[in-house]
């Protein structure tokens, strides 16, 4: 069941910058969707439109069955947003600012729930501290607590782990999993491809205001995933022998390593025949390993295939 339906969304800023060129996207209830893209690709613009911070030029967005313009109250009540920038009220206390957020989103006070959220984010001990006295990582936690205070069904995390230490990143991933178990739909943007790889059910790649691809993460990695076979040679090779020109090979580490990229899904991967040819040519190897290409490799190849530079 779709929880967000985006249709024909475009955004042209007053400066003439076309941030979004007709985006259509459906997000399913309960999934974790990762929006990948380089800086300035339109990720934040897309999120800002859905959350009501930026007006779309054309197009419609339906959130949980409610049009975000005509029925903004119902739509926004369902949505929580953790923006990219650390924007907090410096002089407020942690508890006050999180309580404020819940009220702002039209929910009656619920001190027990706020306490639970603050405890989950390791903020309870800091509840009476002024926000300006907190570290960057703690401020990020405060912003997450604010976004969760009104129990949203849809949570947007814009670059949640940018500039965040390892511990917080781990906590955040744990929190995202917990929210998903509760049925919360999560949309996150990130440059960190490992994050998408680790968390997401589906991945969308946005480039220069266009969604160039939306795919199940596993299917994407299967479809576009290549494997690399690396052979550690006994004797370094000065150059690739002509007899091996039939394979996609590269010499690495001053001729000490032979790398072969192949399509793992193909019927004939070319691996057995390569090894037979090496034996015939008397090229010995000590060790070998194969590696599945990561989402990062896929992303980079996608972006470059488009003829764009990142």
């Amino acid at each position: 069941m779709p929880v967000i339906e985006i249709e024909g969304l475009t955004k042209t800023y007053k400066s003439g910058l076309q941030a979004l060129k007709r985006v259509d996207l459906t997000i399913e209830k309960g999934e974790i969707f990762a929006l990948l893209g380089p800086n300035g690709a339109g990720k934040t613009t897309l999120i800002s439109i859905v959350c009501g911070i930026v007006n779309a030029t054309t197009g419609t967005v339906i959130a949980d069955g409610h049009d975000i313009r005509k029925d903004f109250r119902a739509a926004r009540t369902k949505i929580g947003l953790v923006p990219q920038e650390l924007t907090t009220d410096a002089f407020e206390t942690v508890l006050a600012t999180v309580t404020f957020s819940r009220g702002l989103f039209g929910k009656a006070a619920n001190p027990a729930l706020i306490e639970q959220i603050l405890k989950d984010l390791s903020l309870w001990d800091k509840r009476d501290a002024k926000i300006m006295t907190l570290s960057g990582g703690m401020k990020r936690r405060v912003m997450i607590a604010k976004a969760l205070s009104h129990e949203p069904d849809i949570l947007f995390l814009d670059e949640p782990t940018a500039g965040v230490d390892v511990e917080l990143r781990r906590d955040m991933w744990a929190m995202v999993r917990k929210l998903r178990e509760r049925g919360v739909t999560i949309i996150l943007t990130t440059h960190y491809i490992e994050e998408a790889e680790e968390m997401a059910d589906r991945v969308g790649v946005i480039l220069k205001g266009e969604l160039i691809l939306v795919e199940e993460k596993t299917a994407l990695m299967k479809k576009l995933g290549k494997k690399t076979l690396t052979l550690n040679l006994i004797e370094p090779l000065p150059a690739l022998p002509a007899d091996l020109s039939g394979w996609d090979l590269a010499l690495k580490a001053d001729g000490n390593e032979l790398e072969y990229s192949f399509d793992a899904q193909a019927d004939d991967t070319g691996v057995p025949s390569l090894i037979r040819s090496l034996e015939r040519l008397n090229i010995g190897f000590k060790d070998l390993n194969t590696r599945q290409s990561s989402l990062e490799d896929i992303f980079v190849s996608l972006v470059h295939r488009d003829g764009e530079t990142v």
């Binding site: 959350c51 911070i53 739509a75 923006p83 957020s101 989103f105 039209g106």
Partner: peptide, 8 residues
């Protein structure tokens, strides 16, 4: 941002 994204 919070005011703009809130149901007010």
């Amino acid at each position: 941002y919070e005011i703009l994204s809130a149901p007010v």
